[in-house]
Amino acid sequence: MSTETLTDAPGSNAELRAYLHGLPGVDQVGAEERAARLATRSIKTTAKAAAIDLAISMVDLTTLEGADTPGKVRALCAKAMRPDPEDPSVPKVAAVCVYSDLVDVAVRALDGSGIAVASVATAFPAGRAPLEAKLADTRAAVAAGAAEIDMVIDRGAFLSGDYLKVYEEIAAVKQACGDAHLKVILETGELVTYDNVRRASWLAMRAGADFIKTSTGKVSPAATLPVTLVMLEAVRDFRAATGRRVGVKPAGGIRTAKDAIRYLVLVKETAGDDWLTPRRFRIGASSLLNDLLMQRRKLATGVYSGPDYFTLD
């Protein structure tokens, strides 16, 4: 594939389909085996300490509930800036991720902290709204100060083969983002097959995604190791083809430090060290952070603290 075909807009659905279906297939058994094998890596002592800090710095601390309030978001922002009030050496998280109507609250709370505000947009989580509504949602979030937009793709369009519609929506949202970074949520739990995950990854990257993200967290299964493996292979190959490095964000269901470290191993051995930075790898999570903090303190002191020694938010 030449770089040119990957940066030009596709002319037709047929062309896009031929291109996406021309990507090498993914063997399910093989992909799952590879992910399982990497999950047996033994990360101890200094490696574990480094991994925990790296994972903390990659967290997109997230609250995406109908019940979210300004108070809840401010509390989360405080946690994001100082994850462990007793230990200033803990790195801060990468971003706080909220709904678009709460962006301004988060922006004010995080002012000067260097932590980005990410907003879900485009009729999250279903993505079932007219394009104009999705763009308005995006523009509102950006106007309120969101530095990162987590959009959802139209899975219905993708599954019905209307790849051009998905492409054009992503491209339009990207434009609406302006300088904000665009994370494209594939909702892999609804795409189901790894072949679909690979195709959706390439489609999103070609349409201008800065990050590709597994899930909304509202659909089960959310992030899994093999799905993330396939997406990491996609960003690795896209870089080889175009020179552009697209980030990856697994989100949903990553709750323990052990899980997080397995994802970092996957990144290291698939996309490589270039992706071991919050600029190219994020973990969308809420409860994960406290387990990382607990494991971090265990490593430093040799004893486990109970969950009550870490703040809820």
Partner: peptide, 12 residues
């Protein structure tokens, strides 16, 4: 932020 610090420690 230090980067590229995640190297596997010996795990015998």
């Amino acid at each position: 932020m230090s980067e590229h610090i995640f190297e596997y420690a010996p795990a015998p």
